[in-house]
Each structure stands twice: as structure tokens, then as C-alpha cells.
């Protein structure tokens, strides 16, 4: 009996270990392969969706896209319809939104990042509020804009005007501007600040002369992304009551701020909801214009950011 013991040990013990190891290895490599393929498929499907979308819109919309389309007003007949007034309206909204959000958003970002200590109660309160503000659905801003900017502040905005629209969109994108400003400021190395302060500069001087110029590319990237979000937004403008048939351009004066307006996404939405196929193709042409503007803005933002990230390191 005793003679069997060593042989039992000798035969059996290494065996299961080897087996466990061998069996798993090929299986594990197979899993590895499957996983690699699965992630590849996921990635490709994302890209394919984008390409399909672009292709489909191009094939529908290119036939209507010419200079006439860009330079004439919306019309009842598809052959004569154009997007001049929505395009100009979008530019108005864009410029006004940028003018409102840049000082406010960048100022708030500088305060949170440079001036307030992160442990103070008001900095925490502001931070929580801004994070939640970013999560409020856009249509809620539309409802708010209607109540406040169109009804209550009618004396300033002149009702359903381009100013009311720009104020509503500003509310919508402010959190984005603030968050990206803070990130850009955070990326500036703190030795710069300490060096400036050590030489006797005030905080204002340090921010103005050193920190802000370095953070500017990052801040601009955030601004561009925020504005591209603002251009594409439709829901708040619809609740706000932007019109769809506007055959005039707002005058380039303070009075222009109070004139009624339309914007590209609204015109597109309006064309889609018509039964005639020609209008659907017009909508596709409008989308091409909108997407070209948007893709240009986003490409600029992404390139700017990549460049900024490279020089930072």
C-alpha cells in the first residue's frame, strides 16, 4: 500500500495542473480574438452609420444646391425656394450667442478655477449647479425662454425676436463654455502662476498676462463646440415660436435685434413636414449647408485641441 502512495502523487499531481493550464490557454486566446473582432465591429458600425448618413443626404440634396438656393428666400414653389433668410438668421443667432456666452462663461470659468478655493461652499454650490444645468433638456430651456425672454422681457427683446432666441441658446450652451474654460485653465501649469505671484503680480495680472493667453486655444475650442451645439438646436427655437416664412433680413442695427427670425434647422424641419417630395430634397440641400458649416466648425475645434494638447506636453 505504501508503495502506491508515491506513484499516486507522482502521477496525479502535476497532471491536473498541466491540464488546467493548457485547456485555458487556447480558450483564452480564442476569447481574446473574439473580443478584438467584436470591438472592431462596434467601431466600424459607428463609422458606417456616419458614412451612410452623409451619402444619403448628399445624393438627395446636391441637385438643388446652387447659388440660387443660397441667395433666395423660402418660397411656396420648390424650384424658387432658398435658404437666405434662415442662413442669415443662423448667423445672427451665432454671433449674438457668442457675444453673450464668451464674457459670461469665461468669467465664471476663471472665477471657479483661479479665484475661488475649491473647498469654499459657494464654489461647491456653483459647481453643482453648473453640472446640473448642463443636464437640463433643451426643450426646457425653450419653455423658459418663452416665459421669460418672450413674455416677461418683451420690452427688451421685442417678443419672438432674434435676441430672445440668442438669449435662450446662450443659457443652453453656457455650461459647456464654463466646463471647457475650466479644463483649459487647469491644463496651464501651476508653476507659471506661482512664478508670477512670486514676482509680485496681482492675481488679475497673472491671469491676464500669463494664464489666459496660454489657455486661450482650449477656451476657443470649447467655444466653437458650444456654438456648433447652438446651431443644431431646434427644439428650444420651436417652442420659442421662430417663424418659418420670412422674406426679409433683419436690419443691421439695434432694431435688427428685435426682428423676428428663422434658422436653418427650423426651415429644414418645416420642409420635411410637407408632403411634396421636392421639399424633402430641399431639406436635404439645407442639411448639406448646415452640415458643412458644422463639420467645418468641429474640425477646426478638434484640430485646435489636438494641436494644443501636443504643444502642452
Amino acid at each position: 500500500m505504501t508503495a502506491h502512495e508515491p506513484s499516486l502523487l507522482g502521477n496525479n499531481l502535476p497532471d491536473p495542473q498541466e491540464k488546467r493550464f493548457d485547456l485555458n490557454l487556447s480558450g483564452r486566446y480564442r476569447l481574446d480574438k473574439i473580443f478584438a473582432i467584436a470591438t472592431l465591429i462596434a467601431t466600424i458600425s459607428g463609422v458606417v452609420v456616419l458614412l451612410l448618413l452623409l451619402f444619403d443626404i448628399l445624393s438627395d440634396g446636391l441637385q438643388f444646391l446652387n447659388w440660387n438656393f443660397l441667395s433666395s428666400y423660402p418660397s411656396r414653389s420648390p424650384e424658387r425656394a432658398g435658404i437666405l433668410s434662415p442662413l442669415v438668421g443662423t448667423v445672427w443667432l451665432l454671433v449674438l450667442t457668442a457675444l453673450i456666452t464668451f464674457p459670461l462663461g469665461v468669467g465664471a470659468g476663471i472665477f471657479l478655477e483661479e479665484f475661488s478655493s475649491p473647498d469654499s461652499w459657494y464654489a461647491k454650490l456653483v459647481e453643482i449647479n453648473i453640472n446640473n444645468l448642463a443636464a437640463v433638456p433643451s426643450i426646457i430651456y425653450g419653455l423658459l425662454g418663452l416665459q421669460v425672454f418672450v413674455r416677461i422681457l418683451v420690452g427688451i427683446t421685442g417678443g419672438r425676436s432674434v435676441l430672445a432666441g440668442a438669449l435662450t441658446l446662450s443659457l443652453l450652451v453656457l455650461p459647456i463654455v464654463i466646463v471647457s474654460t475650466r479644463e483649459a485653465l487647469r491644463a496651464v501649469s501651476s508653476s507659471l502662476r506661482q512664478g508670477g505671484l512670486a514676482l509680485g503680480a496681482t492675481r488679475w495680472q497673472v491671469v491676464r498676462e500669463h494664464v489666459f493667453p496660454l489657455a486661450l486655444p482650449g477656451i476657443l475650442t470649447g467655444m466653437i463646440l458650444a456654438l456648433s451645439r447652438a446651431i443644431g438646436e431646434t427644439a428650444p427655437l420651436i417652442t420659442l415660436g421662430a417663424l418659418t416664412f420670412i422674406a426679409f433680413l433683419p436690419p443691421l442695427s439695434p432694431a435688427g435685434l428685435q426682428s423676428s427670425f428663422t434658422a436653418l434647422p427650423i426651415q429644414i424641419y418645416n420642409w420635411v413636414s410637407r408632403p411634396q417630395v421636392d421639399f424633402h430634397n430641399l431639406a436635404a440641400s439645407g442639411i448639406i449647408v448646415l452640415m458643412v458649416v458644422l463639420l467645418l466648425m468641429n474640425t477646426t475645434a478638434i484640430l485646435l485641441r489636438n494641436r494644443f494638447q501636443k504643444t502642452r506636453i
Partner: peptide
């Protein structure tokens, strides 16, 4: 390309 999907306005996706 994937970052550009973010830029597509929702009304365009709805149409599509």
C-alpha cells in the same frame, strides 16, 4: 469620424 457624429443636429438624425 466618431467625434463628428456629435456634431450632427438632432433634426438631421430624425430626418434620416
Amino acid at each position: 469620424a466618431i467625434e463628428l457624429i456629435v456634431a450632427i443636429p438632432s433634426v438631421v438624425l430624425g430626418l434620416w
